[in-house]
């Protein structure tokens, strides 16, 4: 890392954005003097500030560290890449308690985005709000550029989901469960349905009643159910809960397969950090209803960051939220 080059790069980026050192300092909770020292190459920003800086200047951490833009990365972020999910300033309260606080995030076509956070962070609440199961208090949700509130049916036709445990009609067979989803979504393509069943490896058991399935089979059937309507976005809330290592591996392979071959974007939440790291392109850390950090998987690998340490550090009583206060002496 070239400290001077990095400093010049930060300075240029700041000027491009039309921001002063004081403004940047306020956003990060530090003095303009600290910013000045970075820009002159006297100090390098601490690792804690890399993510917020990356967010502010819309560059990757790698680019910050290199002191220059990566063109390939720039292509990837070009605006002609479709957004499948855009959330702006989403808030949700239960009674007087804020569960989601001004959350904004985007998911692009083809991405697999991992959502991690401690228990009670708001992951499931966020997912349920995206799906219309919970009523938001403010903000907007757009799925494939369709506003969820204004055009609920059209927006949700692009989403398949599994929320916590697999929700299936236990007394019906796998076939009938899929039939119900296909009838509601007007899917008559039998070939496609058979393809989905084969993809989730349930061909031999599809005519059995769901109550006879193992948990792994139920998860796979739930995934098939979500895929039946040919979604652009698949939302999976802790899909590996309760599965054995083989079950986890099977599910992971199916998810990767679905993303690669069907170009379906995936938002997956989980407690198993290694699984998230294995599978995702981008990771969002959420705690107390705030987005704490967004990390590209490339950055994590490049910086040799331990996701577990990053997770524990950011969420275990840490005050380093975007816009939060940080003790200047730490810098």
């Amino acid at each position: 890392m070239n400290q001077i080059k990095m400093g010049e790069f930060i300075c240029n980026l700041r000027k491009e954005k039309g921001l002063t050192q004081k403004q940047i300092g306020d956003m990060l909770g530090i003095t303009d003097n600290s910013i000045s020292k970075w820009e002159r190459g006297i100090n390098a920003p601490d690792i804690y500030y890399l993510a917020p800086l990356s967010e502010i200047f819309n560059v990757s951490i790698k680019e910050l560290l290199n002191g220059e833009r990566n063109n390939k990365r720039k292509e990837k972020k070009e605006e002609n890449r479709n957004k499948v999910l855009e959330i702006k300033n989403l808030s949700k309260k239960f009674g007087n308690k804020n569960i989601l606080n001004n959350i904004s995030l985007s998911i692009y076509e083809g991405d697999i985005v991992g959502l991690i956070g401690p228990n009670g962070a708001g992951k499931t609440t966020l997912i349920k709000t995206i799906l219309g199961l919970l009523n938001k208090n403010s903000g907007s949700i757009e799925i494939c550029n369709i506003n969820l509130e204004k055009n609920f049916e059209e927006a949700l036709s692009n989403v398949g989901c599994i929320i916590e445990k697999p929700d299936l009609y236990e007394k019906l067979t796998g076939t009938k469960n899929l039939k119900i989803t296909s009838i509601i979504n007007n899917i008559n393509d039998k070939e496609y349905i058979d393809k989905v069943i084969k993809m989730v490896k349930l061909n031999t058991r599809i005519n059995d009643k769901v109550k006879k399935y193992s948990l792994g089979m139920k998860q796979r059937l739930a995934l098939a159910n979500a895929l039946i309507k040919k979604p652009k976005l698949l939302i999976l809330d802790e899909p590996t809960n309760g599965l054995d290592p083989l079950g986890i591996k099977e599910l992971r392979n199916i998810i990767k397969d679905v993303n690669k071959n069907m170009r379906i974007s995936i938002l997956i939440s989980s407690h198993i950090l290694s699984e998230i790291e294995n599978i995702s392109d981008k990771i969002i850390i959420i705690d107390n209803g705030y987005v704490i950090e967004e990390l590209d998987i490339d950055d994590i690998k490049y910086l040799n960051i331990s996701l577990e340490e990053e997770f524990l550090d950011k969420t275990s009583g840490s005050k380093s939220q975007i816009g939060g206060n940080v003790n200047e002496e730490d810098n």
């Binding site: 799906l131 219309g132 199961l133 609920f152 049916e153 059209e154 927006a155 949700l156 036709s157 989403v159 989901c161 929320i163 445990k165 929700d167 299936l168 009609y169 236990e170 119900i180 989803t181 509601i184 979504n185 159910n225 309507k229």
Partner: peptide, 14 residues
């Protein structure tokens, strides 16, 4: 109570 209402409520139907 069984959670199956989510099957319908997450479909593209009001």
């Amino acid at each position: 109570s069984t959670g199956t209402e989510k099957i319908l409520l997450t479909q593209p139907v009001k």
